Computed example of a mutant assay.
Amino acid sequence: MSRQGTIKRYTLIIERINRGLYPTLKEIETYLFDHGFEISKRTLQRNIEQIRDEFGIEIIYDQEKKGYFIDKENSIQFNSFLRFLEIANTAELITESIKDSKKTLEYISFDNDGILKGISNLKILLQAIKEQKVVTFTHYNFDQGNYKERKLYPYLLKEYLNRWYVIGLQEKDNTNFRTFGIDRISNLTLTTEVFVRNQELHPQSLFSSIIGVIYPEENIQEVVLKFTPFQGKYIKTLPLHHSQEILIDNDKELTIRLWIKINYELKQRLLMLIDQVEVLKPIALRDEMKQVLTKTLNNYN
């Protein structure tokens, strides 16, 4: 079967198990059959093993309940895997639609008008991560306004707001990860130098406590935000962070709590919604938003 068919099967398996109620192998098999996939029990078991081994999704069989469930706490890449399935299935849908009619692209509007600069580097960087090979490149620093030669032991690729970033170590025995936007990378070279990945380092966990890609050294804090009822509808359907908890939800406000590290991207998200949100906690962040608003108002005076 094609790779697209395999990805679609993976999606259906996750959908059925993620519903809860500990489905049996037979129930998952029936769900696949109802969606056009007739496969053997052995193939289904192999697919579950592949999802577990290739993507780190802990699909567990509960002996007591005699069914399967997903151990999300020990599946560090669960959200990334769901995003991967979403992108893959969307791409397949568009590809199939284009095959049916070349006019399909006339009916689709993408977020960016052009191709993201540096996107061609993704393949090389992904190969480097999989094969644990060192890469070298030239990187442009926005803050300092200069170019620097870099040597990186790559660990992870991350996407945020239609931009891709590579995360890795600059020294083999270091433990401090650095993040580089691939749109600012040039002269990328996949070297023959092989390194051993430190299994005690999990860069994915760095991003579990933040929004975006900038992870400060400060501790996780309680952030309480009050939204207008209208904006609250969007916040409920597309949460700001996985820790989001609803405190108040009525016709006057939506108040939520986040447990998160306060970084540049969080502040940017708040400023994008500045007339629709009020920061209640922490006081330091509330005061900072006040200062930004005062400065902005002065700009218009």
Results as ranks from 00 to 15, higher is better:
residue 225 L to I: 09
residue 145 G to W: 15
residue 171 E to C: 04
residue 143 D to N: 15
residue 67 G to L: 10
residue 130 K to G: 04
residue 229 P to H: 08
residue 64 E to M: 11
residue 196 V to E: 12
residue 266 L to V: 07
residue 82 L to Q: 01
residue 76 I to V: 06
residue 109 S to K: 15
residue 262 I to F: 13
residue 301 N to F: 09
residue 212 G to D: 10
residue 282 P to M: 02
residue 115 I to F: 10
residue 278 E to N: 05
residue 140 Y to V: 13
residue 139 H to N: 14
residue 163 R to V: 00
residue 122 L to C: 05
residue 113 D to V: 07
residue 227 F to Q: 13
residue 164 W to A: 00
residue 156 L to Y: 13
residue 187 N to D: 08
residue 275 D to P: 07
residue 293 L to R: 05
residue 23 P to L: 03
residue 222 E to M: 10
residue 105 L to W: 14
residue 46 R to P: 04
residue 118 G to C: 14
residue 23 P to H: 11
residue 152 L to Y: 06
residue 269 R to N: 07
residue 143 D to A: 15
residue 156 L to Q: 02
residue 120 S to T: 11
residue 94 I to V: 12
residue 3 R to K: 13
residue 147 Y to K: 15
residue 77 Q to K: 14
residue 199 Q to L: 09
residue 253 E to T: 08
residue 195 F to N: 06
residue 300 Y to W: 13
residue 55 F to L: 00
residue 107 Y to I: 11
residue 300 Y to T: 05
residue 128 A to T: 05
residue 23 P to F: 09
residue 160 Y to M: 06
residue 209 S to T: 11
residue 168 G to T: 01
residue 272 M to H: 06
residue 250 N to I: 06
residue 49 E to T: 03
residue 38 E to M: 04
residue 90 T to Y: 14
residue 136 T to K: 11
residue 29 E to G: 03
residue 28 I to V: 10
residue 196 V to A: 10
residue 236 K to G: 02
residue 24 T to K: 07
residue 110 F to T: 08
residue 280 L to Y: 02
residue 18 N to K: 12
residue 250 N to G: 02
residue 125 L to C: 04
residue 285 L to F: 09
residue 121 N to T: 05
residue 285 L to T: 01
residue 20 G to R: 10
residue 41 K to N: 03
residue 242 H to N: 14
residue 7 I to F: 09
residue 244 Q to M: 13
residue 119 I to P: 03
residue 110 F to E: 09
residue 288 E to A: 00
residue 159 E to A: 05
residue 24 T to C: 01
residue 193 E to F: 05
residue 300 Y to V: 01
residue 86 E to V: 01
residue 42 R to C: 06
residue 245 E to T: 15
residue 259 W to F: 12
residue 151 K to M: 12
residue 161 L to S: 07
residue 206 L to W: 11
residue 60 I to L: 11
residue 281 K to M: 01
residue 224 V to H: 10
residue 89 N to K: 11
residue 179 T to R: 07
residue 206 L to S: 01
residue 98 I to L: 15
residue 17 I to S: 05
residue 208 S to P: 05
residue 291 Q to F: 08
residue 195 F to E: 03
residue 277 V to D: 03
residue 258 L to Y: 05
residue 50 Q to F: 09
residue 235 I to H: 15
residue 148 K to C: 12
residue 255 T to A: 14
residue 267 K to G: 03
residue 55 F to H: 07
residue 243 S to E: 12
residue 126 L to N: 14
residue 89 N to Q: 12
residue 61 Y to R: 01
residue 239 P to L: 10
residue 298 N to E: 13
residue 100 D to H: 09
residue 258 L to G: 07
residue 119 I to H: 12
residue 166 V to R: 01
residue 135 V to A: 03
residue 181 G to N: 07
residue 224 V to G: 08
residue 299 N to M: 14
residue 160 Y to A: 06
residue 200 E to C: 01
residue 6 T to H: 11
residue 298 N to G: 02
residue 32 L to E: 00
residue 271 L to K: 13
residue 132 Q to I: 00
residue 66 K to I: 01
residue 187 N to C: 00
residue 290 K to Y: 07
residue 252 K to C: 06
residue 46 R to W: 04
residue 194 V to L: 00
residue 269 R to V: 03
